[in-house]
Simulated assay, not measured.
Amino acid sequence: MRLAELSKRSGVPIATIKYYLREGLLAPGRQINARTAEYDEEHLRRLRVVRALVQIGRLPVATAREVLGHIDDDSLGRTVRMGAALWALPQVPDPDGEDEFVERARAEVERMLERLGWSNAQALSTISPAYRSLVTGLAAFRRLGYDWDIELTVPYARLMHQVAVLDLDFVETHASEAERVEVAVLGTVLLEPVLSALRRVAQEEESARRYGFE
């Protein structure tokens, strides 16, 4: 297909497609002559992925390029490949300094991982952005005077493990390694807002059940 048809089928303006090509988010088409290239279904699929990351997930172009680079890197094993792609996504800032709240939160997270038996998560704790985000969030909560301890954190973690099982069960329904990593990233970018919204809807439902509408 030519560029105009690619634009029509994808819903992405021609100027935007050209920008994605220049930025390396989309592979060049097959050159027919000096001014014309031809694109295929793989270009269309990748363009939809790019659009989801940039327009819906609101990733900066440089971040999207890094994420896509990890998705395409078949020299890595699945766990490393998936981790690299997910870790390239925007993260909560690292803990601000090493005050008592950060230290207590880190100790609490370590106790939680030990109780859950999550030895792999413990092994990744020094490099995992998710681990640092967890410490940052718990430290901020404690700094505000809320005593969120391990007895409250563990039940949430167990529920999140069930979500992770569902996530990876879905990932494994896809054939190629690139598709599996791609859908894991898209699931994070596109489904996290859905999961957050479901939590809020559930809170509204439970609040109404407990307290009514007064």
Rank of each mutant, 00 (worst) to 15 (best):
A157Y: 06
D147Y: 01
A62L: 01
L138F: 05
R143S: 14
L89A: 03
L68K: 13
L152E: 13
E66M: 05
E110N: 02
A62P: 07
A62H: 01
R142M: 06
D167W: 11
L68A: 03
L76C: 11
V135E: 02
L76D: 07
L124F: 10
R78A: 13
M112H: 02
E66P: 06
S119R: 05
H174P: 13
G69A: 06
G83K: 02
L68W: 09
R104F: 02
S119G: 03
Q91P: 11
E110K: 06
S75D: 11
I127P: 01
L152W: 08
T126A: 15
V165H: 11
A85N: 01
H174K: 11
M112F: 02
G77E: 08
P93C: 07
G145S: 08
G77K: 03
E177F: 07
E151V: 06
G137H: 14
D147V: 03
H70K: 06
G145D: 04
G117D: 05
D72N: 14
P155T: 13
L113I: 05
L59R: 09
I71D: 10
P95S: 05
E110T: 07
F170Y: 11
A85G: 10
A130L: 15
D94W: 07
Q162V: 15
G97V: 01
T79S: 10
Y131C: 08
N120E: 05
D149P: 00
A88G: 07
R106W: 00
Q162I: 14
E114F: 04
L166A: 11
E66N: 08
R158C: 01
E110W: 03
A85Y: 03
R78K: 10
L86N: 08
R111M: 07
E108M: 09
L152D: 05
E66D: 12
D72R: 13
A64H: 06
I71E: 13
I150V: 15
V154G: 00
L68C: 14
W148D: 05
E103D: 06
D167Y: 10
D96I: 08
E114N: 02
R104T: 14
F170D: 10
S133R: 15
E172K: 08
L76A: 11
G69W: 00
D147C: 04
Q122I: 15
L159K: 07
A164F: 10
E100P: 00
E110Y: 03
T136R: 09
T63C: 12
T153W: 11
W87D: 15
T136D: 07
